[in-house]
Simulated assay, not measured.
Amino acid sequence: MRIQIYISVTVLILIHKSTSEALSPLSPPANVSIHCDSYGVEVRWEYPDLSQDVRFFVEVKASVNHDNRILQNSTQKRSLNISNMLFFSGNNYYFVIVKATRGNQSVLSKSAIFSFNKDVTSAKIKCHLDFPEVELSAKDGKLHVQFINPLDLYRNTPALRNLSDNLEYTVEAEKVRKSATCEMETKTCETSIEFSEHKGIYCVNLTGNIGRRELNPRRSCFMGDIRIYPSFTVYLYPVLGVVLTLLFLTGIIMLLVMKYNSEIKKKAISVRPRFLDIWPTQTHLCKPLKLEPEIVESDLQIEPDEGPKERTTLIEISSRSDEEPGSGDEDEGHGDLDIVCPYGANELDEGGYDCPHALSLEMSPGDMVKGYGR
């Protein structure tokens, strides 16, 4: 009996409790916030009751051309990723409603308006895409800027869903500002900026937007020297060119000098007298004198002159003297002599010209000259 009483009391208590909980209102979620980044949007809230039977309903309201659309989802967690519930994020603005339910529903909690569209003035929360990591390097005397195209990096995120715009970005450094465009098909965006002054550290600020979607600014610095220095070949080729040019000019000058010298020699030869030129082909024109011996009578004898009054006589002994004279001829031969040598015959033969009055034939001065000429 007592057991039945205990069971009945317990059931009554549970029924009363459940009835009272069902009738009493639930506490609404508190501090509903929106967290959006390049990869999605998440809504978060707080709730004091940690019982497992409490669920939360989340509604996302968007405005597209003034048409209200409501998307719902439920969870037992204190947060929910609503990226799949967003559409036309480039133009829309959103707000989220969260309410708790356990038999009955709590009062709803509303988030602030957020949007990826930078032109929505009513949005208190602006969702931006993160600018990708920037790589800086020195190239051709300029600072080269390179980064991954966010259109390719964030292609599958709700922020770029139904996208048809290109990336427009700006690189700014001190007094330098340059704008560029990166198309959707490009994997890597790159550009270069030039500095008027060369420093050791070069810093740039990058901003950009994809349509109405704005990217968070990115600042990056490069430490080093971006000036370009000519290579060794830049100096080598001009030096080789100058050397070759000098050699070429030297060769031309030497050829001109040789030609000028040859012309001078030709002119000198033409001016020189011809009798000084001894050509091998004209040796017959200059023959040396050849002395031919004269035939002189071997029996010619000259007797010295004894005095101015005496005549010079030559005794010509003919070849007939070699013959034996006859006895009768001796007197005939000596009959022509004008002067008789005072010496004896033997003395004349021995002394030769010692005889001052040698017997001779009388000759005229003309005959003497003729004899010498022979």
Rank of each mutant, 00 (worst) to 15 (best):
I5R: 02
I7C: 05
V9N: 00
L12E: 00
L12T: 03
T19N: 12
E21F: 08
S24T: 13
A30F: 03
V32S: 03
V43E: 05
E46D: 11
R69K: 06
I70R: 12
I70H: 13
S74Q: 14
K77N: 11
K77V: 03
S79Q: 11
L80R: 10
S83P: 07
N84L: 09
M85G: 03
L86F: 06
L86T: 01
N91Y: 13
V98W: 03
K110F: 09
S111K: 05
F114W: 07
V120E: 09
V120D: 04
K124P: 01
E133R: 10
E133V: 10
L136P: 01
D140T: 10
Q146K: 15
Q146M: 14
F147E: 01
L153E: 10
Y154W: 04
R155H: 04
N166R: 06
T170M: 08
E172H: 05
K175N: 09
V176F: 12
V176Y: 11
T181G: 03
T181Q: 06
E183H: 09
T186M: 09
K187Q: 11
S192C: 05
E194F: 10
E197K: 08
Y202L: 02
N205H: 11
L206A: 04
G211W: 10
E214N: 04
P217G: 12
R218E: 07
C221S: 12
F222K: 03
T233F: 08
Y237V: 13
T250R: 07
L256M: 10
N261D: 07
S262Q: 09
I264D: 01
K265Y: 04
K266G: 01
I269H: 03
R272E: 07
R272P: 00
R272M: 07
R272C: 04
P280R: 00
T281Y: 08
T283D: 00
L289F: 14
P293C: 00
E297D: 14
S298L: 05
D299Q: 10
E303T: 15
G307H: 07
P308R: 00
K309S: 09
E310L: 11
T313P: 00
L314Y: 13
I317R: 15
R320N: 15
E324R: 05
P325E: 11
G328E: 14
G328T: 14
D329K: 05
E330C: 08
D331K: 15
G333D: 14
G333P: 02
H334K: 04
L337S: 14
D338F: 08
P342W: 15
P342N: 14
P342K: 15
G344T: 15
Y353P: 14
H357V: 14
L361C: 12
E362W: 05
E362Y: 06
D367Q: 14
M368D: 08
K370F: 15
